[in-house]
Amino acid sequence: MSVAVLARLQAEFGAKILETSSFRGDDEAIVAPSDWAAVAAFLRADSELVMDHFIDITAIDYPERTPQLPRFDVVLLVRSMSKNHRVRLKTRVQDGEELDTLVPVWRGANWTEREVFDMFGIRFRGHPDMRRILLYEEFVGYPLRKDYPIDKTQPLIEYRKEDNLEKLPPFGPTEGQPWNRIDWQARLEGRDMQVSPAIAVQQGQKHALSESSARAEGKPLPDEIPGKN
């Protein structure tokens, strides 16, 4: 059953399906952003696939794989109510690039696309109501991007200025465990030598630069970088 979905997509679209995979039983097909809406509409309309049950749209940020590959993965998850199979459709978009909306195909895409815009800043062309949904209009930036610092707050109203309010944060950026935590700010500014293994694979490197080799080359380790909290 599961292979049939990918085979059907490949038979219909041929080379437009850039990659397929079935990791742990999850079928995945990657298409170009220009084919995104067409493939989605086919998934819904085809009599063999009938992906009528909308599940989710989300995105993943890979700032380090640019410029070889576009920065964001946008992921669509759908399933078929009658056939009981699922598929994951993926596309890769640049920062600032607009993607066709899927609201005409599944109306359920409305809020999830708004959330992707809210969290990642990916706009959807033709969306009926492209507003922030979880955060407030005054918020600047997109928090789920890797380069947004997790503890950068943007208060809507001023905090009180009283004595005894200077509490220490309970955890801090390293959550009490400075070991092996990824500091994205340091990493994206090139101060951190750690590159995650998945990125290394995507960039064609054989191995990620390990901490021991960084030490051998005399480069600073993440823990030793001055100015890091």
């Binding site: 955060l135 928090p143 947004y148 610092p149 997790i150 503890d151 950068k152 707050t153 943007q154 208060p155 109203i157 905090y159 009180r160 009283e162 309010l165 509490k167 944060p169 309970p170 955890f171 801090g172």
Partner: peptide, 20 residues
Amino acid sequence: SCGGFYDNYTTIPGADKVIP
């Protein structure tokens, strides 16, 4: 009281930052 482990971009570290 203090924001708990939601020490992030969206949570106020304690209601006392806004009201007594």
